[in-house]
Amino acid sequence: MTALQEKPKAVAPSGPPPRRRGKRATALAGTDKLVLAIMLGIPTIVHLLFVWIPTLGSIALSFSRWNGIGGFEDIEWIGVENYVEIFTEYPRFWPAVQHNLIWLAFLLVVPTCAGLLLAVLLDRELRFSRIYQSALYMPMVLSLALIGFIWQLIYTPDGGLLNSVLGLDKPVDWIGDSDINLYAVLVAAAWRHTGYIMLLYLAGLKGVDPSLKEAAALDGASATQTFFRVTFPVMKPVNIVVAVVTVIEALRAFDIVYVINKGRNGLELLSVLVTDNIIGEASRIGRGSAVAVILLTISLGVIIPYLYQTFSKENRT
């Protein structure tokens, strides 16, 4: 047996529970234990202090009325009033929820399909494949704020590229018309997201065992059949990652609408409502925090199953 607590390479699913092995930690030399504690402790403190404690703070503040001025003694605690107001009165809330959902649906459908298609097309011996890939995922490295700037050059009603190319008699107000501006912005967001999805699927496709495909081909399956019956199901882990990445991206969406018109007039998003309420000239910290908590709850609805999926598998291997 080893004195150190090195993790054995493979632990059987029914292996000893961590608690029992934990006892043997005494086997580590004193200094090593201390070093290890510091190595784990410092990052954990930083992470907890600046990410999780503020998160808890937001939850607490969501039950308050506070204009952000003065100390904590100025905070008035009002229970769930903020939530009631948000759900019943706040005129921008439900539109924001709707826009976030549209955002999510759009990102789940368009960039995912486009990314998957491009990945499938590029996952073969193909001349210039790398050049194509580079071009397709280049938008990834640009910030969303910058993308907001660049796409406004395309969308401006007077003299923008799109209206000029379309050459309509009556220019379309891509950014100002609240019936279409969300989709106009979504195209810009999808423009950036597609390359990412393509890359994830490319990696996934390369990881698929070629013998599976060969076996399917021998059974007389067409290429399409092989893809949907063999390849796609095997890529389940990638599909999950794509789903999580997309959901988080959709919930976090902020920079691009904020740069374009501060998230007003058809571009309201939950993240914008949080920002508007907590920073800005007249803060309503309580209401902003309550929207943040709603956003948090939705996010956790995705994060927790994902963690469960990822780490329960880990325990088994």
Binding site: T156, D158, P171, D177
Partner: peptide, 15 residues
Amino acid sequence: QENALGREWQEAAQA
């Protein structure tokens, strides 16, 4: 001027 919601005042001033 139409489409005011998609225009910044600077652009209107330039008109």
